[in-house]
Design a protein around this nucleic acid. Structure first.
Lengths: 336, 336
DNA sequence: GTGAAAGCGCTAACAA
DNA sequence: TTGTTAGCGCTTTCAC
C-alpha cells in the first residue's frame, strides 16, 4: 500500500505539501504540483479513507436510508437511490445504503460513528419515528417526502397538493363533472404517508372550488381488487367519466377492466395517472399523467445536503412543481 | 464526541480493555465487562469508524456495484440490493452503493482507498470490463451473475441453464411439441449477458433431447413490440402451444394479446415465465413460473464475501437450483 | 511557497 | 486478566 509519506519522499517534498496538492487548500508552485502529481501517478497512490476521516473528521460519505416497505413502488425508490448515488459522486461523496431493517437505531449508529457526514431519508412518514433522533443529532439531514412537522428539517418532494389540483383541473377543463380517484392501498393511508394525503387535499380542494363531484377510494393493486373497487365506484356514481389514479399496480387493471366493460378510453372515460413516466408510457393506453420526478428528487436532495455540509443553506422545504403530460388516455367528457 | 479513552477513564480501566470488551478478542472478567458496558451506555459512546478503520485496516464496509442498465428489471435489482444490505448488517458490515456511472474506476478507487473491505458486483456481463481490475486487486469480491471465465472468482447466480431445461420439461410433460421463447430485449443478448444466454442453452439443449420444436425471439417490452413478435411466431410456427417468457415487460402484453386473439390460457396456450414471484402472481393470469430468487442471491453473495473476508472459503461458483411453481397459466396441450 | 510536528481515536503487539 | 504504548495515514496549525 502506498502512503502519502512515500509520495512525499518520491517527489522530494514534505507530507503536508502532498496533502495540500490533494486538497487544494493552499497555493502550490506549478513545479511542485507537477512533481507531486507525477509521483502520485507513478506510485499509484490512493488516499486512505479511514486516515482521512480520522484526521479531518469528515468521511465524505452520505447515508441513504431506504425503508423497505412492500407497498411502495420499487422502481421509483431505485431511481431515486441511483440518482442520489450519482449526484453524490459528482460532489465527491460516496453513498452508504441503509435499509429500514435496523430501524431508527441506524440513525444513531451512523451519526455517532462518523461513518457518514450527513443523511438522506426516503419514504418519510407524516409522523416518522426517525425524526426525533434526527433532531438530536448534529449531522445534517435531508428528507425525501414531507413529515407533518418540518420545523428544523430540510425536505424535498414533489408538490403533491399541486399535483392533485392539476389533475382535477385537467379533467374539469375537458368537461368532466364527476371524478373518481383510485388511490394507494389502504395501508398507505393508514400509515399517514404524506404524499398520499397531500394529493388528496389537492384533489378535493380544487374539486370543491370547481364544483365537481369527487369520490376517493383506496385500492390494493391487482385485477381482483381493482374490479371490486371499480364496480363500487360506478355503482355509487354512475355518472363518473374521469379517473385519477395514484397507484401503479392499479393502472393496467383499470384499463383492462374498462376495456372489458366496453368503455372506451378516452372516448367514454378519461384517465389521468400520477405515476412514473415509464409506467405512463408503457401502459396499454398511453396515459395522460403527472410524472414522479425521481431523478430530480434524488439530485435535489443531494444538493441540499451538500449545501448544508458546506455550511451553506438552512432548513428549507423544496417542492417540485408538477408537470402534466397529455397523452392518449384523456379527452373531452362524452355528451350526456 | 465521546472517545474510547473517556469511556476507559469513566470505567476506571485502560483503553485497551475497553477496546477488547468491544471486540471480544480477549477474555474479560465479568465485573470489568459490566463496568465498561455501563460506562459505554451512560456516556452514549459510539466507536469512531475512521479511527477503527485506520488502526485495524478493515472498514467493515462492503461495496455493492449496481450498474444502471435501463433494460434490466429494476425491482429485482432492488430486491437483491436490499437483501445484500440486510444480510451485510447481520454480519456487521455496512454497504456502500456504487453505480455504474463511474465505470470500472470505482473498483480501483474503493479498493485503493480502503473504503470497503470487499465488493459485490451485480449484473455481471460475460466479458465484464470490471473483471481484470478485480483480479489485480487483493480485495475479495463476489459476483452476482456468471462471466465467461470464472477462474479465480466467486460467483452466485440462479442456475439459468437448469431453469431453461426445467421450463421445457414442464411443457413437454404436458404434451406440448412446439415451444416459443419470448426473450429479453435484443440489447441484452448483444451485450452477452450471461443469464440470457445460459437460459437459452438450457432451453435448446433439453428441447433437442426431447425432440421438441423451439423458436427463440428476443423482444423489447411493451404491447407493440410483443404484438409484432407474437404475430411472427404464430406465422412461422402455427402449431405453437407453449410459451416460455423471460422478459417481465412482455408478460402482460403477451397475455393480453392471446386473450384478444381468442386463445385461452391455459386451454389453448400454455405460458411459463421466468420472472420474480411478484410478477407471476400479479399477472392477469397467475403464471406458472420459475422465480428469480433475488433475496437468496443477495444473501448468498454476502455470505460468500464474508467467508472470504474471514479467510475462509475460496473461489467458488454457487448456482441456485431453480424451482418451478405450477399456477394457472399452463396445462395439457390441446388435442390436435 | 514549503516544512515540521502534533494529533485524530482506535487496535494490537508486548509486558506484567 | 489487565495495562502500556507504538503506530495506522492523514490533516492542519504553526513556523519559516
Amino acid at each position: 500500500m502506498v502512503t502519502l509519506a512515500e509520495v512525499a519522499q518520491h517527489a522530494g517534498v514534505s507530507a503536508s505539501t502532498v496533502s495540500y496538492v490533494l486538497s487544494g487548500k493552499r497555493s502550490i508552485s506549478v513545479n511542485t504540483r507537477q512533481r507531486v502529481e507525477r509521483s502520485i501517478r507513478e506510485l499509484g497512490y490512493h488516499p486512505n479513507a479511514g486516515a482521512r476521516a480520522l484526521a479531518s473528521s469528515r468521511s465524505n460519505v452520505i447515508a441513504l436510508m431506504v425503508p423497505l416497505r412492500t407497498d411502495m413502488y420499487v422502481p421509483v425508490m431505485m431511481e431515486i437511490a441511483i440518482a442520489v448515488a450519482t449526484s453524490a459522486r459528482a460532489h465527491g461523496y460516496d453513498v452508504l445504503l441503509l435499509t429500514g431493517e435496523e430501524g431508527p437505531d441506524a440513525v444513531r449508529r451512523v451519526a455517532g460513528s462518523g461513518l457518514a457526514d450527513g443523511m438522506i431519508l426516503m419514504d418519510v412518514e407524516l409522523d416518522d419515528e426517525r425524526l426525533p433522533l434526527l433532531r438530536e443529532t448534529d449531522r445534517p439531514a435531508v428528507l425525501i417526502g414531507l413529515p407533518a412537522d418540518t420545523a428544523g428539517l430540510t425536505c424535498v418532494d414533489l408538490d403533491f397538493k399541486a399535483t392533485g389540483a392539476l389533475c382535477v383541473e385537467h379533467l374539469a377543463q375537458r368537461g368532466h363533472r364527476d371524478i373518481a380517484v383510485i388511490g394507494e392501498a389502504p395501508a398507505v393511508y393508514e400509515r399517514h404517508t404524506g404524499f398520499a394525503e397531500r394529493t388528496l387535499d389537492g384533489l378535493r380542494g380544487r374539486a370543491r372550488e370547481l364544483g365537481l363531484g369527487l369520490l376517493h377510494r383506496p385500492c390494493e393493486g391487482g385485477y381482483d381488487a381493482m374490479a371490486v373497487t371499480l364496480a363500487r365506484i360506478l355503482d355509487e356514481r354512475p355518472g363518473t367519466t374521469g379517473f385519477v389514479v395514484q397507484n401503479e399496480s392499479a393502472v393496467e387493471p383499470l384499463l383492462a377492466l374498462l376495456r372489458q366493460q366496453g368503455r372506451a378510453v378516452p372516448e367514454d372515460m378519461s384517465v389521468v395517472a400520477i405515476c412514473p413516466e415509464q409506467v405512463a408510457v408503457q401502459a396499454s393506453v398511453r396515459l395522460t399523467s403527472v410524472a414522479i420526478p425521481a431523478q430530480e428528487m434524488g439530485r435535489l436532495a443531494v444538493e441540499q445536503l451538500v449545501a448544508k455540509l458546506g455550511g451553506r443553506g438552512g432548513d428549507e422545504v423544496v417542492l417540485i412543481a408538477p408537470e402534466l403530460t397529455v397523452r392518449a388516455s384523456s379527452g373531452p367528457a362524452p355528451a350526456r
